[in-house]
Design a protein around this nucleic acid. Structure first.
Length: 639
DNA sequence: CGCATGATGATAGTAGTT
DNA sequence: AACTACTATCATCATGCG
């Protein structure tokens, strides 16, 4: 019963059974404290000689693979120890920059070229900054990358005001183009928009960036405005990616791309990132989460707050965007910037129901005179699950559940917990309590019997989130799918509280554009508020979710029209124009874009807004902008 | 192939202390 | 300020079964 680790005390109880040594088994491997996981490229380089050797030589191989001399690597590791890879790299860079004479020049250049910077620029920058100053070389190079231009560099300004001069001249160069395009008649086959797009891509921006910028800045925007916008956006997300959407660039730099994934590059970028963010936090105020997380108010805290929306944000239509509050740094700054600089409202659903759900909402709804859905849902675990009270131990002080996620705990875990508790009559030792509570919090376990904990059933999750019972049940939906769909959904009471201000404004019902609808949290919220749904256009990629929504739509005898669109990419300007013409415009545009790449639960692809799924946020922006343009009649008549 | 199962940390924040 | 301790988190991947 006492674990195999010698000298354990009560607080350090070993919970691992003999063949299950995985729990909290951190820091066993000597590599576990490396701050950056090994990339495939590095592994590839080290693979040949790595198997069966000591971690030390493995580490040496890794750095040798980056192009440092073996002796130097060995020496540095000896000096600094193998724990701190960052320090090792720094020292290596220092050495290779300072100790090696003339021949190092080309080596250094190769080094930066290997990171993916164009050779000519590297040569120039190294000359200007001097070889010794790795930091400032990198800084200058990164400045270029942020501008991401392929135009040749001819300026000979000094390094201090280099970038600003560069940008200035760039814009000057295009001022001619602006006046030209403004006055030109549109007679050629290429539209004004296409010309600008072409010009921007020629300047080195990706097509995606360019089109987003053009949509955001409007049809009459000048090239200068557009570049301004892109630069601002890039600076905002510089933290996440200094080479946004690099795959889209036409020039095929596949080998460079791979090299960029090198380890040293990642380390340096990370350092850079932290610096940039710090600077940003000082200038713009960082997005900070309120404590308590009640946004502009919740029903229980009856404080009336007001706000003034930025001019560009004012509807129609009303819009409502949602995502996880605890996203990687800089993400919410970017989201806010792309949504007309509206300040996000961070709300924890624990003020509305028995489960926490920390989310950020960017919307232009009024915030005065909100009212909650009635009846109030249960506010504590005991109220929500009365039967658990009998088995709930006194030392489990939880009154609220944590965030409902897409996965549930394994049966093995609850089994381990049961076995652990069975060893004791009455109250278990503190160490045992700590372990059990930790797991209960992590997996939202509730007490269903003596020493027996269990994950929530799907219908219990439905109830907690404010959906009707069996909302996600049947019709070919698997149990796993139910958990997944529910875990990705709105908390209905929370969203309904925000939507409640619409009830007076749209007594005859509303037209809803619902992006990434999922299982229809927004629709259910409006319905429960008693706001009639006239026409709903729902965009949802997953067939199971579309089935759920359609089934709910039929069961609740909706009078309106439900239009289902699977792929958000299909919702282009033409389609929108047609829909808006048919239904007379949208009153509300709702969307909670996928969060897979933002949430901390994701161990594999937490890539920020640049992630494969999270980038769909930009589709939300695109569509919202189009709706705004079309409805306000400012869209150019050329399409 | 669909489905269920079990194993797999890192990040960014708070709170407290030095 | 810097450091430690502690906490929570709309998940993905490989595997095995029928």
């Amino acid at each position: 019963m006492v674990g195999s680790i010698s000298g354990v005390d009560a607080d350090n109880f070993d919970w691992d059974t003999e063949d299950d040594l995985e729990i909290d088994n951190y820091a066993v491997s000597s590599h576990s404290d490396l701050s950056i996981p090994c990339r495939e490229a590095v592994l590839g380089l080290a693979e040949a000689s790595s198997s069966g050797e000591s971690p030390s030589s493995k580490l040496i191989d890794q750095f040798v693979g980056m192009g440092f001399p073996r002796e130097m690597v060995a020496k540095v590791i000896e000096e600094k120890g193998e724990e701190n890879s960052n320090l090792i790299l720094e020292t290596l860079l220092e050495y290779s920059a300072s100790t090696l004479p003339s021949s190092s020049n080309s080596k250094m250049i190769n080094h930066f070229v290997g990171m993916g910077f164009p050779e000519e620029i590297v040569v120039k920058v190294v000359q200007e900054n001097g070889e010794g100053n790795t930091e400032s070389i990198l800084e200058t190079l990164l400045t270029y990358s942020a501008l991401e231009t392929t135009a040749p560099i001819q300026q000979n300004a000094d390094s201090d005001n280099f970038s600003s001069d560069y940008e200035g001249s760039l814009l000057d160069d295009f001022s001619d183009f602006d006046s030209f395009s403004d006055t030109e008649e549109i007679t050629s086959p290429a539209s004004d928009e296409d010309r600008k797009l072409l010009h921007l891509t020629k300047m080195g921006y990706s097509e995606a960036e360019a089109s987003v910028a053009m949509e955001r800045c409007g049809p009459d925007s000048t090239i200068a405005e557009l570049t301004d916008f892109i630069c601002a956006a890039q600076m905002a997300k510089a933290a996440d990616a200094l080479f946004p959407l690099e795959e889209k660039k036409p020039c095929g730099n596949d080998s460079n791309h791979k090299k960029r994934r090198n380890w040293d590059y990642d380390l340096l970028i990370r350092k850079k990132k932290m610096k940039l963010e710090k600077r940003f936090d000082e200038d713009d105020e960082a997005v900070h989460l309120p404590n308590p997380m009640i946004g502009f108010g919740v029903p229980t805290e009856s404080e009336q707050s007001t706000r003034v929306l930025p001019e560009g944000a004012v509807g129609p239509p009303y819009f409502y965007y949602e995502n996880v509050a605890l996203a990687p740094k800089g993400v919410w700054t970017t989201i806010s910037r792309f949504l007309y600089d509206v300040e996000p409202e961070f709300v924890d659903s624990k003020f509305f129901c028995a489960a926490a759900r920390k989310r950020g909402y960017v919307h232009n709804l009024p915030i005065e005179n909100r009212f909650p859905l009635l009846p109030f849902p249960p506010h504590t675990i005991h109220e929500a699950f009365p039967l658990t009270r009998k088995w709930w131990p006194s030392w489990d002080m939880r009154t609220k559940l944590n965030c409902l996620q897409t996965c549930i705990s394994s049966a093995r875990l609850t089994d381990r917990i049961r076995k652990a508790l069975e060893d004791y009559e009455g109250v278990p030792p503190l160490g045992v309590q700590k372990f059990v509570l930790e797991q209960c919090r992590k997996w939202n376990l509730v007490w269903v019997g003596r020493n027996k904990v269990a994950p929530l059933e799907p219908d219990e999750v439905e109830m907690l989130l404010g959906f009707p019972k069996n909302h996600t049940r049947g019709g070919g939906i698997s149990r796993t799918d139910r958990y997944k769909s529910l875990g990705n959904s709105f908390q209905v009471d929370t969203v309904a509280y925000h939507f409640s201000v619409l009830k007076d404004k749209f007594p005859g019902g509303i037209n809803l554009l619902s992006l990434f609808s999922g299982i229809g949290g927004a629709e259910v919220a409006l319905h429960r508020l008693g706001i009639p749904l006239k026409n709903v256009v729902s965009v949802e990629i997953a067939e199971v979710n579309r089935n759920i929504l359609r089934s709910w739509w039929e069961q609740t005898n909706q009078r309106g029209t439900l239009v289902e669109i699977p792929d958000v990419q299909d919702l282009n300007g033409d389609r929108l124009e047609q829909l808006i013409k048919t239904y007379g415009g949208f009153d509300l545009v709702v969307g909670g874009s996928p969060c897979n790449n933002l949430t901390g639960s994701n161990r594999y692809h937490r890539d920020g807004l640049e992630g494969k799924d999270s980038a769909l946020f930009f589709d939300y922006c695109r569509i919202l902008d189009l709706v705004k343009c079309i409805m306000n009649g400012t869209r150019s008549m050329t399409v």
